[in-house]
Simulated assay, not measured.
Amino acid sequence: MDEKTRQNNTYLTFFLDEELYGLNIQMVREVLEFTAITRVPMTADFMRGVINVRGHVVPVIDLRKKFGLAEGERTAETCIIIVELEIDGEAATMGALVDGVKEVLDIPTEQIDAAPRLGSRLDTRFIAGIGKLADAFVILLNIDEIFSDRELSMIAGLRQQVEEQEE
């Protein structure tokens, strides 16, 4: 298997409410310990605020809230995954607050099933697939599909607003 193919099937796995999720490693820039997040007023409830990452304003979203899960306790394992995504054709950086990171896994294509159809009430477009491990399933996320265009515009606007206030 060549390096590009291997990279496409390599996932950073993490926990939300005791469920295992994965993000393609190509989307992940780094993992940070939990740090103070500056709340920005008048934003969606899943928007936790912004953090400073080496001089850059990075919006942080709470994946638990985005997925409609109960708010979790902050622990020593709570962290922020910094991801790269595309907003209006431009690369953007965003933080995702998660309960804890587990490990980086290679999941062969033959061990990944398509997202299950769960009826019309549940939006599964953000699920890239379900990885089958020996003892568990990994819900593989498509980070670009997790947010609507309106939400992505809001995130981009938030970053711009904070940067203008700092000038």
Rank of each mutant, 00 (worst) to 15 (best):
T109G: 11
L105E: 14
A128R: 00
R117M: 14
T38A: 14
S120R: 13
L140S: 02
E103K: 08
S148K: 06
L133V: 07
R29G: 04
T75E: 14
L158M: 15
E110T: 14
G89F: 11
N24Q: 09
N142G: 00
G95S: 08
L20H: 07
V28F: 06
R125P: 04
A36R: 15
T5M: 15
I25C: 14
D106K: 06
K66T: 02
I25Y: 07
L140Q: 01
T43F: 05
D144C: 04
V104D: 10
T78G: 08
K132V: 11
T38Y: 13
L141T: 04
I146S: 02
I112P: 01
G100E: 05
I143Y: 00
T13C: 02
L12K: 04
K132E: 13
D99E: 09
K132S: 14
T38W: 08
L122S: 06
L23F: 05
I130Q: 04
G129T: 03
G119T: 06
T109D: 13
D2Y: 13
M42P: 03
A91W: 10
G100D: 04
D17P: 02
F67P: 01
V60M: 00
R121N: 11
V162H: 01
M27F: 09
A114W: 03
L23A: 05
A44I: 09
P41R: 09
E151H: 05
I112C: 02
I87M: 06
E166V: 10
G131F: 03
A128N: 05
R74S: 15
T124R: 05
L122G: 02
I155C: 02
R48I: 06
E30Y: 11
V83D: 00
G49F: 03
I80T: 04
Q165G: 12
T10E: 06
Q161C: 14
Y11S: 05
E110S: 14
R159A: 06
I127D: 01
A91S: 12
V162P: 04
A136L: 13
G95Q: 00
L63I: 12
K102P: 03
R39G: 10
D99Y: 00
E86Q: 15
D144R: 00
M154I: 12
F46D: 04
T75M: 06
D106G: 11
L152F: 04
A115T: 03
K65Q: 07
E86S: 12
A134G: 13
I82L: 07
E151F: 03
A96P: 02
I87S: 01
L152G: 03
P41F: 11
D99G: 05
I112D: 00
V31D: 02
L69M: 10
R54Q: 12
E33H: 08
D17L: 07
T13Q: 03
Q7G: 11
M47Q: 08
F67G: 02
G55I: 10
E19N: 13
I81S: 01
E18L: 11
K4A: 15
F126A: 03
G49I: 09
Y21H: 07
